[in-house]
Every structure is written in C-alpha cells, then in structure tokens.
C-alpha cells in the first residue's frame, strides 16, 4: 500500500467521524407539541406570526426582548419570547422560523428567520392613483 493511500484513509476516517458527529448534533425541525414534549432540546419551529394577538416590544425596558404569538404549521399557538430586537417590518412577515426551546408555557427563541414578503409575489399591482 502506498503512503498516500494510508494518509488518505486516515484523513477520510477522521473527516467521517467529525461530519457524523456534527450531523448528529444538528437541531431538528419540529412543531410546538414536540418542543413541549422535549423541553430540553433545541428545536426549530416554522409557523406564522399571529397578527391578532399582542406583540410586545418595549425597547425602553429591554431592547433585546420581544414577545408575540406564533401558530405553528399544525395549528398550535404558543407565546414566543425572543431574545432579540424587533426586526424591521416584523408585522409583514409571512412565515417565520424560530430556534429555541420550550420553557414553562412559553417558547424561548434565540434565533429567528423571517420569510420576507419582498422575495415573494404578494399579488398586488401598484397602480397610479392620479
């Protein structure tokens, strides 16, 4: 066997080890029910911001904290506490992805990704009204 082959096998073995470990540690997509069933595991929940319910963001008190209600894809609603400042145009978001875990009755999120309407056809034609 050639030296290069031995080195190749060693490096590849290490790489496979590292990759499988980090894939194993990846957080999973889920819904609120799963989040509350496993309160210790980090989970990503996709859902919609409930525009009817109260959204609290009071920068005077804490610029890094907001709370709102989100309905997941299964239709379950939950209060979300997000440890971030309120993004521009949050109210317009169509779909949001939250990463976090269940704490008590709430879902505490550390990261959020919004599907911004800009990239999607909102179906409105702008018409001049002169």
């Amino acid at each position: 066997m050639k030296k290069t082959h031995i080195i190749a096998i060693v490096i590849i073995a290490v790489a496979i080890g590292v990759i499988t470990t980090s894939l194993g540690n990846a957080s999973t997509y889920g819904n609120f029910t799963e989040a509350f069933d496993n309160p210790d595991s980090k989970i990503q929940v996709v859902g919609y911001f409930n525009k009817e319910k109260e959204l609290v963001y009071e920068p005077e008190i804490d610029p890094n904290l907001m709370s709102f209600y989100m309905t997941d894809k299964e239709g379950k609603e939950c209060k979300v506490v997000l440890n971030q400042s309120k993004p521009q145009d949050f109210e317009r978001s169509e779909e949001i992805v939250l990463k976090g875990k269940a704490v008590g009755e709430e879902f505490h999120a550390t990261d959020m990704l919004m599907k911004c309407p800009s990239k999607y056809n909102d179906g409105n034609l702008q018409v001049y009204t002169d």
Binding site: V18, L23, T28, Y29, I43, Q44, T110, D111, L113
Partner: peptide, 17 residues
Amino acid sequence: MALDIGAQERFDIYHSF
C-alpha cells in the same frame, strides 16, 4: 434535520472543521 439559522451555531459547526 434543520439547517442552522443562528450565527453562533453556524460558527461552531463550520469552524470546528
């Protein structure tokens, strides 16, 4: 498996390798 969305998590995943 969820694609990581947090900056810190991404750093951990990619930088370790």
